[in-house]
Amino acid sequence: MRESRLWFWHILSAIVIVFLLGAHMGTMHMNTILNSLGLGSADPVDSVEVFRRSASPVFLVAYIVLLGSALFHGLYGLRSMLFELSLSKSVEKTIGGLCAFAGFALFGYGTYVAIVVYRMHGVQP
């Protein structure tokens, strides 16, 4: 039951990631084309652009949701690949624990960064 629930979250997180990361990759990697159409920015990693996005509540929420779903999806994927090696129960437990620890620690750090930068309210051009 627990395993099928985790698998369901793996699939559900993939759907969330498609939209959020799709938008993120579009902003970062389709920027030249989007900019020529009057959308997006010419240099999306320029500090003024980066801090302007980070100061927006929409981006704050989107980044925290992306952080959580991509960490769960990626680490669960890694865990299930390792579980395919027919390991002993105790090794499986250790791997599961390490993945969960890494996931919560990275989520905590990323959320801390997103909130601190949000409260900077952008930078001067």
């Binding site: 980066v50 991509a70 990626g74 994927g77 890694l78 690949m81 960064v113 930068v117 930078v123």
Partner: peptide, 28 residues
């Protein structure tokens, strides 16, 4: 599999690189 692992490795480094924003504009 290969792309999933690759993106995961990049993403973990990405969290620390984008974390540099905490140091402000100059640091970024």
């Amino acid at each position: 599999r290969l792309t999933g692992l690759g993106i995961l490795a990049y993403f973990i480094m990405h969290i620390f690189v984008t974390g540099m924003r905490v140091g402000g504009q100059e640091e970024w």
